[in-house]
Computed example of a mutant assay.
Amino acid sequence: MPTLYDLWLQTLNRHADAVAVRDAATGEQWTFSALHEEVAMLPPLTPRQVHVATVRGVGGARQLVLECLRAWRDDAVLCPVELDTPPLLAEAASQRVCFPPEICHIKFTSGSTGQPRGVLFRGDQLAADGENIRQTMGLDVSCPNLAVISLAHSYGFSNLILPLLLQGHPMVLVPDPMPSSKRQAHALGIRYTVPAVPAMWRAWHQAGLLKDAPIALAISAGAPLPLQLEEEVFAQAGIKIHNFYGSSECGGIAYDASPNRGAMPATPARPCTGRG
């Protein structure tokens, strides 16, 4: 069975000269080959050791992509975190806790139902989640993902990093989800896919940013999407927000693929591919 790094090499072979990551604020862009070359310059990690990768400061999102590839290359156990390393994880990293050979990734849950906890994943589970999301949502590589959610969280990792590295789906970086950053993305003159959360959709709607926005696919997850907000956005901007439901423990679960507003009053319409 191919490893995640093997799958990355296949992506690299298919999309070597295509733009992989673009920074909307600076205009900088990196091809898939350029990312691979940067990773080749990073020193090797200890195999099977926990590798904590943080999203911190300017360039943190792109650096997380590089650290992900580095961990895959060196057979380390990747654990993305937003800012600070949880104490339990710091202890595991310092003591060089050995995980079963098939484990390659640790996700830390949000803690919404109690204390945050680490969930262990095999590479084939991550790859399956990314592929199921791609097929379910019908992701189009001509419409890059706009990275307004955290790449370290389960939602961002599965919807942004996995499609980028395993399927060649490009990503556009913005400094934050604020309206000013959203305008920077609009100025690129390309249509893009936007995985976001209800609070972001509400803020952009109230700021009047969604009318005539070049959004090819609008996705909402992380919390229930209010039906009233969905209807208001559709009425003002003609954008159907597709509600997505998943969890850190098992990835994507269900997705509202309907093109019509109001199709999903409380829960997503159908299971994701692979869960039917």
Rank of each mutant, 00 (worst) to 15 (best):
residue 59 G to N: 14
residue 109 T to S: 05
residue 61 A to E: 08
residue 75 D to A: 15
residue 83 L to G: 09
residue 78 L to K: 08
residue 49 Q to T: 05
residue 111 G to D: 02
residue 47 P to R: 05
residue 82 E to S: 12
residue 106 I to H: 02
residue 97 V to M: 15
residue 64 L to D: 08
residue 114 G to D: 04
residue 66 L to K: 00
residue 88 L to K: 03
residue 86 P to L: 11
residue 96 R to P: 07
residue 62 R to V: 00
residue 72 W to F: 11
residue 85 T to D: 00
residue 114 G to T: 01
residue 77 V to A: 03
residue 102 E to C: 14
residue 106 I to G: 00
residue 65 V to E: 01
residue 90 A to P: 09
residue 70 R to F: 07
residue 93 A to D: 00
residue 98 C to A: 15
residue 47 P to K: 11
residue 105 H to P: 05
residue 50 V to N: 03
residue 47 P to M: 07
residue 88 L to N: 06
residue 92 A to K: 05
residue 106 I to Y: 00
residue 115 Q to V: 11
residue 81 V to E: 01
residue 71 A to D: 05
residue 100 P to S: 03
residue 92 A to N: 04
residue 64 L to N: 09
residue 77 V to N: 06
residue 67 E to C: 05
residue 91 E to D: 14
residue 56 R to G: 10
residue 111 G to F: 02
residue 108 F to I: 12
residue 85 T to L: 02
residue 57 G to D: 09
residue 88 L to Q: 08
residue 71 A to L: 13
residue 112 S to A: 10
residue 51 H to W: 09
residue 51 H to I: 10
residue 77 V to G: 05
residue 115 Q to G: 05
residue 111 G to L: 02
residue 109 T to Q: 06
residue 56 R to W: 12
residue 56 R to A: 12
residue 66 L to R: 00
residue 48 R to C: 04
residue 62 R to N: 00
residue 107 K to N: 07
residue 72 W to D: 04
residue 97 V to R: 15
residue 106 I to C: 00
residue 50 V to L: 08
residue 103 I to S: 07
residue 110 S to N: 14
residue 50 V to R: 01
residue 47 P to E: 13
residue 76 A to W: 08
residue 104 C to I: 03
residue 88 L to S: 09
residue 109 T to K: 05
residue 114 G to S: 03
residue 105 H to F: 15
residue 73 R to T: 09
residue 104 C to A: 07
residue 80 P to Q: 04
residue 115 Q to I: 09
residue 112 S to F: 11
residue 96 R to T: 12
residue 60 G to N: 09
residue 94 S to Q: 10
residue 55 V to W: 03
residue 83 L to M: 13
residue 112 S to D: 06
residue 105 H to Y: 13
residue 106 I to T: 01
residue 92 A to S: 08
residue 53 A to G: 04
residue 60 G to R: 09
residue 58 V to C: 12
residue 96 R to Q: 11
residue 112 S to G: 04
residue 99 F to M: 15
residue 55 V to A: 05
residue 110 S to R: 14
residue 71 A to Y: 04
residue 61 A to W: 03
residue 58 V to N: 15
residue 96 R to D: 15
residue 58 V to D: 14
residue 90 A to S: 11
residue 79 C to R: 07
residue 52 V to A: 07
residue 50 V to G: 03
residue 79 C to P: 09
residue 70 R to H: 09
residue 80 P to L: 02
residue 80 P to D: 01
residue 49 Q to I: 06
residue 115 Q to N: 10
residue 47 P to H: 13
residue 108 F to S: 10
residue 89 L to K: 04
residue 110 S to A: 14
residue 102 E to W: 10
residue 98 C to I: 14
residue 90 A to V: 08
residue 72 W to V: 02
residue 61 A to Y: 03
residue 101 P to S: 11
residue 114 G to N: 02
residue 76 A to R: 10
residue 78 L to R: 03
residue 106 I to R: 00
